[in-house]
Design a protein around this nucleic acid. Structure first.
Lengths: 202, 202
DNA sequence: CGTGTACTTGATCGTCTTCAAGAGCGGTGG
DNA sequence: CCACCGCTCTTGAAGACGATCAAGTACACG
């Protein structure tokens, strides 16, 4: 656990290496991963604006984090006012991704959800140069995948199998290879509009 | 429809009266309401930061909207730099609510979801003085409730009935009366932490 | 009145969950 | 070096929660 719910952080996390998730845990033990962050993401900028964390920040794999003190952020904004806009932009992109996840969990079936997650990862990881030939490393357990998609572990397992059977992806270890990006997008009814901002930063 | 997906708005909407929703529609016709906005909310501040809308803004009831040109926002920020922080705060609160919705859709059952929505509305409407004795006006159809919670219309109907049967709420027309807020919160496993910022604005 | 929209109810069906158990695999310590 | 442990992945079977289909009712509005 990197940052705890209810805490009042005085620094934000910049991910240098590895995968990080934002999670909430319900009283009955149910867990939801609300966002997966990859290297380069500023994963809890919110804590700079909000008084108290309403969720946890968790490492999803072995990872390296740079902690940026809020005071430093404030100083930087004073010096470079333009930075404020960049931070807002970052929050807005983040919110767009969260919204798309919500649609998925609310209205897509299991295979669409998994496929959608993979499509998103393909694009996001590609932007930071972590994709080679439509294949990338996704160091998440099936349990984490389940918590991210609102499914059960067992069903994630079966869904992944069916995606492999349909020849949309293949995987060995944590390496995912998207055999046919176009078909995968179709299976997920994936529309990259919500990620448009990633390509051409304001 | 107030603002269309794919458009590039040059103004943001401030809600003066009525309820507004942010929605996405899937290719198969499925629809998800990702946020419900109430009077006083700045409902598409994102459009000020992002190039293109990734979702729609829809009236959920008869309502009055003030359109604020982006140029005006820019001017105001130049004049009152503190305003920028307020806008970011607004986006952060918004993101917190979206996250909590996601947990609900992903990990709560039907009655918890509905109960949770009502708990949230009770607090948000109370902050803007639209609650009297734990009762408030919620001008949403059951179809809209279904699209907000990721359920079917039929099931929303039955779930509402069971909440009434359990004496947690009562309703006549669009007026909802929360009979026992504490019990409703318990039934929803509602935790108001994510709304904390609403009470004490930065 | 007649029409449209929202709400209600019953019956059936399917997707996904839950429970339970086994297999594979890497790591650790005796 | 091998045995054991824990974690992840896999598989099967049963059952639940919610979706879907199909009518029917209530009510506002022109």
């Amino acid at each position: 656990m990197i940052v705890l719910r209810e805490s009042k952080p005085v620094e934000s996390c910049l991910i240098v290496e590895g995968f990080v998730g934002r999670t909430k845990v319900l009283s009955d033990g149910g867990r939801q991963i609300m966002a997966v962050h990859i290297p380069g993401d500023f994963c809890d900028l919110h804590s700079y604006f909000l008084p108290r964390m309403d969720h946890n920040i968790e490492a999803l794999s072995r990872c390296t984090i740079a902690k940026v003190p809020h005071t430093l952020i404030s100083d930087m904004i004073l010096k470079y006012p333009h930075l404020a806009r960049f931070l807002s932009w970052d929050m807005a992109v983040d919110a767009a991704i969260t919204r798309e996840w919500m649609v998925g969990i609310g209205r897509r079936n299991a295979s669409q959800r998994i496929a959608h997650l993979l499509c998103e990862m393909l694009i996001r990881l590609e932007v930071i140069g972590m994709v080679r030939d439509t294949s990338f490393d996704l160091p998440l357990t099936q349990e984490q995948l389940a918590d991210a998609t609102g499914l059960s572990i067992v069903h994630v397992n079966r869904t992944l199998q069916s995606l492999r059977r349909d020849n949309l992806i293949s995987s060995s270890g944590s390496r995912i290879s998207v055999k046919n990006p176009a078909k995968l997008q179709e299976a997920a009814s994936f529309d990259s509009t919500y990620l448009a901002a990633l390509r051409n930063r304001a």
